[in-house]
Design a protein around this nucleic acid. Structure first.
Length: 574
RNA sequence: CGGGGCGUGGCGCAGCUUGGUAGCGCGCUUGGUUUGGGACCAAGAGGCCGGGGGUUCGAAUCCCCCCGCCCCGACCA
């Protein structure tokens, strides 16, 4: 490819709209351009990177027994109504109608379509197991698109679905795909971790996410430095921890009493006012779950885990109740709500730590007042006690007891053991060897392809630009003649370029009439793994200078050895 | 959806408070000089100032409505 003909509009300045490094670099290196909020055009360089990652995925999916197919983007409402998700999916789903008024959606995912296909085409155990996948655009009308292609409303996703005779088969598919995912992300040059995950809107029993570690990641995980335990904090199970506060031995428990706490609304304020550690307080939050109010109790220094709460409540919509609703229902503003004397219609959900707090304090459901000397069980009772909080760094690993550590990550992939969730509702059954009709047992496996490209950039860059791994680089090498006007340099550059191409190396010849500084800066920004410079000096020596982007190391290589040298280097970096 | 901010040549911005018909840097075009880390000189091109309405002799500037984009929060791959 000639740089003079390549549409790679690099930007010198910093685009105003980009916050994260990957977003900035994708714009500056001319990989993407925004079309609308959360929607991007992938320019040639960006598209090539996307294809590179896509092809790695293809190879690994095929190796894992997958067969590629292509499902439509536009899906009829009927199958979503059949699975029950037409109403569940909510405003995230792009919905549309055709000229006849029939309802459709832009596929946010494809479980329904694939299950319907299998329902039609698979009848016998002899056709199982089956692993089908596609690399396709997905559409989700995100509340808030962010970070460039990291959270777009349109994105490229690889989704695979496995169909097995029984649970053991599904677990085997799941294991094989988990391994395939490790291979994919390793080949992409990512630092990542497989973590236990919540199954969210997709459903199923068991799920893991693959997190590319990055400070800018939206997800938070905990992991054990000593064993292989790792989990998304949304999922990580919590066990009650003693608050370090016990009733003094031998003292009788005093009666609960209401004390004035004017102006003390937050846990920190209440703790300071009452001179009690936050861990001894009970935090009471009023949530609105599908329109009805519920009270949620956690220790004062803990955070409610809304994913766990939603799962416990089994509701579709969950949010903190607006202040007005709280005041209307309880007669006091949110800062003073507590578990004692709540209206009968508000069920109380308590985290497992709440019952073991002694001599606690909590809001009195009266403005400016809190209870002290509260004894859970004596003074109030929860309707449900469950794990409802978010794990903290330093808590013991559930496997081995070592203190857990926290990290942030970009979710690049997630795998699910779905079981019969879709095959049951959509009637995808097969006839087993014993003649019985059984639902196929499914798994599903997603990789955010566009997001993976962003994650690679997020992890591999410096102040000058992108540092592609060879495996994902749009082009492996750029050949830069220092002066385009010097015909001998151009001649040699063309020759080297030809040698590289003959060797099957993807190269760009920077034949633009630009000063060398401009070409070097663009080469660094775009992130070609190798740069070959042809200059006056190298011309005299019969060499070229080969510079590695990642290390900055430069070496003079005789012209007749360049292609072999680079072929070898690229092979090692792959 | 709530809160905040911004829409002015391709990109980044100034001008708006105190209305008088648009400017800077980069980029682009042409010519020349230059060429191992974002050159220089000269001459150019390019803007319904997001859209609509209003006030005014006159609106980028003041008022109203709408749209788009970004950031923060609650949700998700």
């Amino acid at each position: 490819m000639l740089a003079s003909q390549l549409l790679a509009p690099t930007l010198r300045g910093m685009p105003a709209e980009a916050e994260t490094v990957s977003h900035q670099l994708m714009l500056r290196a001319g990989l993407i351009r925004q079309v609308a909020s959360g929607m991007y055009t992938h320019l040639p360089l960006g598209f090539r990177a996307l294809q590179k990652v896509g092809n790695i995925i293809r190879e690994e999916m095929d190796r894992a027994g997958g067969q590629e197919l292509l499902l439509p983007i536009v899906q009829p409402a009927e199958i979503w109504q059949e699975s029950g998700r037409w109403d569940v999916y909510g405003p995230e789903m792009f919905r549309l109608q055709d000229r006849h008024g029939r309802h459709f959606c832009l596929g946010p995912t494809h479980e329904e379509l694939i299950t319907v296909l299998v329902r039609q085409e698979v009848n016998s155990y002899r056709q199982l197991p089956l692993r089908l996948y596609q690399i396709q655009n997905k559409y989700r009308d995100e509340r808030r698109p962010r970070f460039g292609v990291m959270r777009g409303r349109e994105f490229v996703m690889k989704d695979m679905y496995s169909f097995d005779r029984d649970a053991a088969g599904m677990e085997e598919s799941y294991r094989i795909l988990g391994e395939a995912y490790h291979r994919v992300f390793s080949r992409c040059g990512l630092h990542f971790r497989m973590v236990e995950a919540d199954t969210g809107a997709i459903g199923g029993a068991v799920s893991h996410e693959f997190m590319a570690l990055a400070a800018s990641g939206e997800a938070e995980i905990v992991y054990c430095p000593e064993c292989d335990y790792a989990a998304n904090v949304e999922k990580a199970a919590c066990h009650p921890r003693p608050a370090g506060v016990t009733a003094a031995a031998g003292t009788g428990l005093e009666a609960a009493e209401i004390v004035p706490t004017p102006g003390a609304r937050t846990m920190a304020e209440v703790a300071a006012y009452l001179s009690l550690p936050a861990a001894q307080l009970i935090k009471t939050l009023i949530y609105q779950a599908d329109g009805r109010l519920v009270a949620v109790l956690v220790r004062g220094d803990r955070q409610v885990n809304e994913v766990k709460l939603q799962r416990q409540l089994g509701c579709l919509d969950l949010e903190l109740a607006p202040d007005e609703s709280v005041t209307a229902a309880l007669g006091c503003p949110p800062g003073y709500v507590g578990p004692v004397g709540l209206p009968a219609g508000i069920p109380v959900y308590a985290d497992t730590e709440v019952p073991i707090i002694r001599r606690s304090a909590a809001g009195a459901n009266r403005e400016g007042c809190h209870y002290v000397n509260l004894e859970p069980g004596r003074d109030f009772a929860a309707d449900v006690v469950a794990d409802l909080r978010t794990v903290e760094a330093g808590e013991p690993c559930p496997n081995c007891g070592h203190p857990l550590e926290k990290a942030r990550g970009i979710e690049v992939g997630q795998i699910f053991q779905l079981g019969t969730k879709y095959s049951q509702t959509l009637g995808a059954t097969y006839t087993d060897a014993d003649g019985g009709e059984k639902p196929v047992i499914m798994g599903c496996y997603g990789i955010g392809v566009s997001r993976t490209v962003a994650a690679i950039i997020e992890q591999r860059h410096d102040e000058k630009g992108i540092i592609w791994p060879v495996s994902a680089a749009p082009f492996a090498v750029v050949v830069v003649p220092v002066s385009e006007k010097e015909s001998r340099q151009m001649e040699l550059a063309r020759r080297v370029y030809g040698l590289l191409r003959d060797q099957g190396i993807e190269a760009v010849l920077d034949d633009r009439d630009e000063r060398p500084g401009v070409k070097f800066a663009d080469a660094d920004l775009i992130g070609f793994p190798y740069r070959v410079t042809v200059g006056r000096r190298t011309l005299e020596q019969g060499t070229v200078d080969v510079k590695e982007r990642a290390t900055g190391q430069e070496e003079a290589v005789p012209v007749d050895r360049v292609s072999g040298y680079l072929a070898e280097a690229l092979d090692q970096g792959r």
